[in-house]
Nucleic acid binder design. Structure first.
Lengths: 216, 216
DNA sequence: CAATATGAGTGGCCAGACCACTTTCAAATT
DNA sequence: AATTTGAAAGTGGTCTGGCCACTCATATTG
């Protein structure tokens, strides 16, 4: 039994090992030679498992130092999946649409939670909007975090990385008129209004992006 | 430069090779020994790249036969990511929420597209609903496909695999009253109504799931 | 003609060997 | 005594060559 796919077993064993010994992100895991010895497998087989986990962005290896649990930052996954799975232009639209979907859902989630509205965090963004230090990505990220759905946040972050941060420039002057309504609506927990205002803003951005040109 | 991380280069080279020679899903790619020769790397290094792609579900290897481009079916990815990234109960909620988010977004997208409403595809589901052969997952999948956002469909499919198809049972009798309104609204392109009805249905399902108990 | 044996090709796995790099710490220098 | 230096140990990165288990097409045999 257990025919073939030893390296998959290793992936699982490593996962369990990590759980049992309670290794946290950033911590170092045993060296390849140690692990191979402990798990009774050849080093090259063990490496197949480690490289796989690395490509997934779950671990991070530094030559001469060791292997570490990833901080969930580097996602090679994005680079790979993006070129394998997403190839044509239709896909670019899909990414933008899907990203928007998550952002809007976050807005709805926030508006439904009274405790969040009381935070009065939106004021600080209004200030930033005035002194030109406002950046859309910062704002949206804040929303994604506040929404409390970590999975959605993760997916959003992936999409954000993939589509590039081409919207991280500072806001244009005529863009401000589109942003204020969003902040106002959020402050007052007006879900419908917030969503509509956010959509209007997003469409404006999309239009501008079309004019500027595409990055491959 | 390009110090270290040879296997990452290989991943890219294989990707390019696949693109150039136009290998389709299901096709066989050169053997490990051939590839190692062509790319001028050791076989073990090459294998690290292949196993990584395999864990991602992009290729499929069969001992004694060869390596093949995957049909996008087997996603080891789900198994691995699910245990690494999603561990606690909060995450289960997040999965359900996120999945719902994609489904609702699909409904909205469908309602905005007149051509889709004319398909009259919903009638067939009404029939199935009557003769007891209706399954929620089939219905939702159809919607996800119709929405036209392939990325969203992919994400939804992953979430679906992860959360298990615990909702694929046949509809209960009192569930039908919740499903009909959804189909009706879809038929008439009543976006708001369709979303509300779908939410009501989903909440009913969630409640039932709570009662039944959780699967780990 | 059908059943069987053979061999070539493939992925799965392993042991051992270098290399390049980082860290450490004791010895040599100042 | 404080600092610099450098050798050693430990780590990941890579390659070689080998053996095994499996599949499939072909040849051999009954």
């Amino acid at each position: 039994m257990n025919q073939s796919k030893r390296y998959l077993d290793i992936v699982k064993e490593i996962r369990d090992m990590i759980r049992q010994e309670k290794i946290k992100p950033g911590d170092r895991i045993p060296s390849e030679r140690e692990l191979a010895e402990k798990l009774q497998v050849g080093r090259s087989t063990l490496r197949e498992a480690l490289r796989s986990l690395e490509l997934l962005g779950l671990i991070e290896t530094r030559r001469g130092e060791g292997t570490f649990l990833s901080d969930h930052r580097n996602h090679q996954l994005v680079e790979v999946l993006s070129t394998f799975i997403l190839q044509d232009n239709k896909s670019r639209e899909d990414v933008w649409e899907t990203r928007l979907m998550h952002e809007i859902s976050a807005i709805q989630s926030i508006c439904e939670n009274k405790a969040l509205a009381d935070l009065r965090i939106w004021d600080s963004f209004k200030v930033k909007l005035q002194d030109e230090s406002f950046q859309r990505d910062d704002f949206v990220r804040e929303m994604m975090v506040l929404s409390g759905n970590r999975l959605s946040l993760k997916i959003w972050f992936l999409l954000h990385q993939y589509s590039g941060s081409s919207y991280s420039e500072e806001v244009a002057e005529d863009e401000k008129d589109l942003v204020y309504p969003v902040l106002d609506a959020l402050e007052n927990q007006q879900e419908e209004k917030a969503v509509q205002a956010f959509k209007a803003w997003s469409e404006w951005i999309e239009k501008r992006r079309m004019q500027n040109g595409d990055n491959s």
